[in-house]
Amino acid sequence: MTIRDEHLRQALQHAPDRLSAPHENTSRAVLSYARQTLEKEQRVWWQSCMMWLKKPLVSNWQRAGVGGLATALVVMLIFWQMAPEKATWPDAFPEHAFNTDKNNAVALMKDKNAAELNAPLMRRKARATGAPAQEQTMATQPGHVIGQGEHQSIALDHSSPATNEIASAPISAPAVVAGANDSSGAMSSANQARGSGSQKTEAASAELSEAKPVKKDAVLDIMQLLDSIKNEGGQTVAARDISLSKLRMLKLDMSTTKQENSAPCLQMATVDASPDMETGYPVLMVSICDSSMQLINGVAEYNQQMQDYWYRQLQKKNNER
């Protein structure tokens, strides 16, 4: 419906202001505003993060937190992408390693040079913990085979005060605890993971089970730890370890899984020469036969939980300051 007056419309079209337009600056301002709005919208997420970090309201500890997380991510990526070392088990684990000597030794030093390099640190650690001089001597001797009776000194179980100290401080000596079969139930899954295994391994296991008293040694602990991680999940196990002050990081070495059937598939645990870069917790290198995703994910969860705990402690300390 229209109620138009044609003559008035004509008059309006011929009005002197018919060609009037906004000032050039006004038009420029409108177009510029529209452009800026669109650019702001299209800003990628990381630019937004940078903008957030630049805000004066963002405090230093928030920046530190973001930085810490970024560092942790980078470290994790580095470890993730590190190719597993080519397995050299026959050399690293000569047959005599399975023979029980008078102390039922089943482990040997993996890297003699590393032991020499880390000897001063180990001595300092021993002094701090008041460890017996004999252990100091043994620890500094390259190639020293750690026997069954000595496992407590490098035990990864932190439940006892002595071992707690070792666990909470970076352990420098590359002590190697070779995995051996045990007739106890806790070892059954490890045996299964090992698959058919070789006759040599079985023989060694038999010898060990005869010679070794049923003792909760480090190897057994590791086996149980891996079993627990696999069954209960990394987070649960890590939470339990934290409550027991067992602070450590796990690192899986899956090179053993690539062993041929003829070669023995050995479980082995090594305390890494250098502690975790971020947390400072000792790194427990575990060579495994079981490379299931369940276990790998579980270990990742375990480590994450440990990192989170460390970060929370760090924040707590900062707040106290």
Binding site: H7, Q13, A15, P16
Partner: peptide, 13 residues
């Protein structure tokens, strides 16, 4: 006519 409409427009405003 042009002049007229222009004046008309002015008057209308």
């Amino acid at each position: 006519q042009q002049v007229f409409w222009r004046k008309a427009g002015q008057r209308l405003l």
